[in-house]
């Protein structure tokens, strides 16, 4: 690994890890369903960065770009479905606060 790659590698992987931490924090801390979804999005951003970084470091950008494009397509579909679920929750009980949802016991 050349020194140039080393210099690229650690800031980017650190950024990915910090994105994971922030996303986890946001999902754990919030009571709002939309915020939880945004937190999950941040997690996915971290994964995207990590994949592209892997492709850049190994010079395998063709493969990793294909992976990321597929990932983005799936991400959008999941977000649309999750948005639909949130909308239905709101229509059902006029609130999207998790605390009012906890009718099921763990």
């Amino acid at each position: 690994m050349s020194p140039d790659l080393t210099q690229v590698f650690w800031p980017f992987s650190a950024a990915a890890i910090l994105l994971f931490v922030m996303g986890t924090y946001y999902v754990l801390v919030t009571f709002n369903l939309i915020r939880a979804l945004i937190g999950v999005e941040i997690l996915i951003k971290g994964a995207t960065l990590l994949i592209i970084l892997a492709g850049y470091v190994t010079g395998n950008t063709g493969l990793t770009q294909a992976l990321v494009i597929t990932l983005i397509v799936i991400e959008v579909v999941i977000m649309v479905v999750a948005g639909g679920v949130i909308l239905c929750v709101y229509r059902n009980n006029k609130s999207i606060d998790v605390r009012e949802l906890r009718s099921l016991k763990g």
Partner: peptide, 10 residues
Amino acid sequence: MLSSIALIVM
């Protein structure tokens, strides 16, 4: 899983 895939690609 995706993070793991990234490391595996590496």
